[in-house]
Write a protein that binds this DNA or RNA. Sequence first.
DNA 1: CTCTTGTCGAACACCACTGTTCGAGTTACG
DNA 2: CGTAACTCGAACAGTGGTGTTCGACAAGAG
Lengths: 193, 193
Amino acid sequence: MGVTKRADAQRNIAAILAAATECLSRNPAASTSEIAKEAGVGRVTLYGHFPSRAELVDAVFVHAIEVGEQSLSQVGLTGDPREALARLVESSWHLVDRYAALLVAALDTLPPGRVRELHADPMARVEKLLERGRSEGVFRSDLPVSWLVSVMHNVMHGAAGEIQAGRLSSGEAAGYITATLLAAFTPPGERVT
Amino acid sequence: MGVTKRADAQRNIAAILAAATECLSRNPAASTSEIAKEAGVGRVTLYGHFPSRAELVDAVFVHAIEVGEQSLSQVGLTGDPREALARLVESSWHLVDRYAALLVAALDTLPPGRVRELHADPMARVEKLLERGRSEGVFRSDLPVSWLVSVMHNVMHGAAGEIQAGRLSSGEAAGYITATLLAAFTPPGERVT
DNA sequence: CTCTTGTCGAACACCACTGTTCGAGTTACG
DNA sequence: CGTAACTCGAACAGTGGTGTTCGACAAGAG
């Protein structure tokens, strides 16, 4: 069939995707030359497979989300919502830590809203858990769920920033984040665990 | 004396500073042409007063910090640490809301560490209040102060992002932020106010 | 083995920006 | 009023990226 790519082309596409993930994770502003070099491929070849830098970034980001979803979908969300949240944060944190710079690249390359659009699934997971925790009275209901989600994102990305600046170690981060969020989500009048 | 600038030069410098604040607050990547035009001044004149775009950004940022300090220094920090924090957040939030984009400009223009360096005073104020709250047992002591400060910053800047994205109104923000931070800073075992 | 598909490097056009230079004109200041 | 300080537009050089074109060449598919 005419649609199938040749074997070496497929290999190169994979190599470019991997190299782009690597480069953009180090430097969100990495150029196509850098990425092509890292992939062991000519710049022309790169443009042969991805029409523009933006579309490459998009592809890389989509792939990262898929990998993340695979990991996140294995986290059990039943039982005590607080413990479930701790598990979810633990898993999410590893992804944020790994892909923080990639997110920056996507944020200032892709059209506005695109990043959020691709985050729909992971966000829905968090929202659902928060909703359940609220109905069981262990998470606060005096603030919108969307705000709580935003707080979670910002605390995690803030932690990634602290690590990059060398003011926090990867090991400590997860504990700090969960402790902070569990307290932040506690309903007024209740005791912080 | 030879050091004094001519009157029109001083006016232009002020106009450039104001225009830069305005432009960079709208678009962190604003060019020198844009800024000069907004100031009603030729690009050459701009370079006559500021050796480079970076030094202009630095000057604008320094000025913004000074203005902020003036406002922050009037916040009373005595009494119940929780109420003091609420007051401090209220004031800080107005500044963050106004200068969020400017911070981005500074962050990716100025040398690493410069922004933090200029934030030394406002940060010291927050740290001092947090320390006092800890010693009085109303803020948690199981996490480093530096982490708590980072959480405060990230929650506020996250709120600014939500506003820019149109998912949050300026009016609601301050309340959400204080409610979130007061809970997050509550010591484990204590009740959230 | 043949032919299509893909690859490569070098060169090119293009763009938007920074920072500089020039010379002529204008404005404050003493 | 005279001079030094300042301003202006236009034009220039330099930089660092994106995306394209070319022609020679290699490699996989049938």
